[in-house]
Amino acid sequence: MTSTITLEPLTAEAFKPYGDVIATADRDYFMINNGSTRRYHQLANVDTEGGSAIISIFQATPLVYPLSVTMMERHPLGSQAFIPLLGNAYLILVAAPTRDLNSDRLDSQTIRGFISDGSQGVNYHKGVWHHPILALTDQDQFLVVDRAGSGNNCEEVHFSDAETRVLEIPVSRL
């Protein structure tokens, strides 16, 4: 029997167990460049175990909704940040972090769903289970900051039919 994942607004407080919300709203800043630029300093930290931080652009196409969530992934050797470039809303699915990075255990009932308003990025902390990118707009683009280097930095877990969750999107969200 599958259960439904409910979407909630993306807030720094709700997302804190999984990582950082990258946004300027309600954040402190200081002026630089002779007073012409606001610097919202250190909104997230890049965490790389060995290797180095890299910047990429991902171009994503929406999946079919309602979505049967049959897998999640994590990056045990580094954080991974997604920053929307085109200002479109997108979805985020995360699950309770596994304390033991050597364990692939994941309880699909701990999956939480968030919706970004398009001005918010996310930085998944090292080892946090998440679903691959969930665009809502065709050919959406994201600046991605993650780790390059030796070692396996992408692990996937696939659910049995009994563990599968369904993500439905209310029409008002599209």
Rank of each mutant, 00 (worst) to 15 (best):
H130D: 04
S36T: 15
S56L: 15
S116K: 06
Y18K: 02
Q80T: 05
I32Q: 09
G51W: 06
L106K: 02
S56K: 15
M1G: 14
A148S: 14
E13S: 10
G51Y: 06
G50L: 03
C154Y: 07
L134G: 00
L85M: 03
S56V: 13
Y90Q: 07
T98Q: 15
G118Q: 04
P17T: 01
G149W: 05
P84D: 03
A96K: 15
P9N: 02
D104C: 10
L67D: 00
N34Y: 14
P62N: 04
M71G: 12
Q80G: 01
P62T: 00
L63E: 13
V21Q: 01
P62H: 02
T24S: 12
N45G: 14
D100N: 13
M71W: 10
D26C: 07
R165L: 06
L93A: 03
L134M: 06
F114A: 01
S116L: 09
D140W: 05
H131T: 04
I57H: 09
K16W: 10
Y124C: 05
N102Q: 14
G118N: 06
A60S: 15
V94Y: 00
E73N: 02
L136Q: 02
T2K: 15
Q120N: 07
I169E: 00
E13Y: 05
S103M: 08
T4Q: 14
